[in-house]
Design a protein around this nucleic acid. Structure first.
Lengths: 119, 119
DNA sequence: TCATATACCGAAAATTTTTTCGGTACTTGT
DNA sequence: ACAAGTACCGAAAAAATTTTCGGTATATGA
C-alpha cells in the first residue's frame, strides 16, 4: 500500500475516461515506446525518454499497470530484472496514439513557426 | 498582456505536441461541444460543462484561440455578447476526439467495475 | 432600487503533477 | 574496497493546473 493513486480515472464521461488514462505527461510516449509488443526493461524505457525524470516513469508505469494498459513481469534474479509489456487493452489505444502522432507531424510547422525559438 | 501562457505547446515531439494541445482537463470536451460547427456563447459552454469552473473554461478557451483551434467573435453590444466557433484546425482534431470517445464508450464497463463506487 | 444576466479579469488558494534528492539492496567489474 | 549498474521507494520541493472569490461594466425585468 505504498503509493496510492488519488484519482484513478475519470468516469464522468467516455471522453474524459480515455483522456485520463493517457494525459499524464509521459504516458502516451510510454505506450508509443511499447507499441511493438516487445517487453522493455525500466532502464531501457528511461534511456528512450531521457527528458523524463526516472521517478515519474516509475510512477506512471505503475499507474498504467494498475489501469491494465501495461503488464509487469518481475524476474527473481540478482541484480533485479523486470520487464514491461503492453497489454491487449494498451494495444487498443495505439490507433489513437497513431492519429495523434500523425496529426502532430502534419501540423508541426504551424506551431514551430508560432512558438519555436527561431521565428 | 494580461494573462500569459507559460508553456504554449510542447515541441519536443509530434505526439507531445498534439497531447499538449488537448490534454488540459476540459479542452477535449470543449472541442466536442463545438464539433458541429455551430458558434456557442461562453454561457452556453458553461452550461454544457457544469462540472468545470467557469474561470477555467475562460482560460482554456483563450488558450485554444491562441493555438488556433477555436475562433472568437466579439459583438460590440450591450450586454456583451461573444461567440466561439471551432476552426478548420480544431476540426482536424475531431477524428482523434471521436476515437477517444469511442474507445471510452467501448471500455467504460471495465473501469466502472474497477474504480466505480458500487462494485 | 435591486436582483439577474452577460462577459471577462486578477489574485490567491487548493489541488495535482512533476521533479529532485536521498536511501535500500544486491551484483559485477576494476 | 569501491564505483557503477539494476530496480525501486519515500519525502519534500517545485511547478503547473484548477478552483474559488471578488471585482469591473452595462442592461433588463420585477
Amino acid at each position: 500500500m505504498a503509493y496510492e493513486k488519488k484519482i484513478p480515472v475519470d468516469l464522468d464521461c467516455p471522453l474524459r475516461l480515455t483522456m485520463s488514462l493517457i494525459e499524464s505527461k509521459w504516458k502516451s510516449c510510454i505506450l508509443d515506446e511499447l507499441r511493438n509488443g516487445e517487453p522493455q526493461r525500466p532502464s531501457e524505457i528511461h534511456k528512450c525518454l531521457p527528458e523524463a525524470a526516472p521517478r515519474v516513469l516509475d510512477i506512471q508505469l505503475k499507474e498504467m499497470v494498475e489501469d491494465g494498459l501495461v503488464k509487469k513481469t518481475i524476474y527473481p534474479e540478482l541484480p533485479p530484472r523486470s520487464e514491461y509489456r503492453i497489454t491487449e487493452l494498451g494495444l487498443s489505444l495505439i490507433p489513437i496514439i497513431d492519429q495523434m502522432l500523425n496529426w502532430g507531424t502534419e501540423h508541426f510547422d504551424i506551431f514551430e513557426k508560432k512558438y519555436g525559438k527561431k521565428n
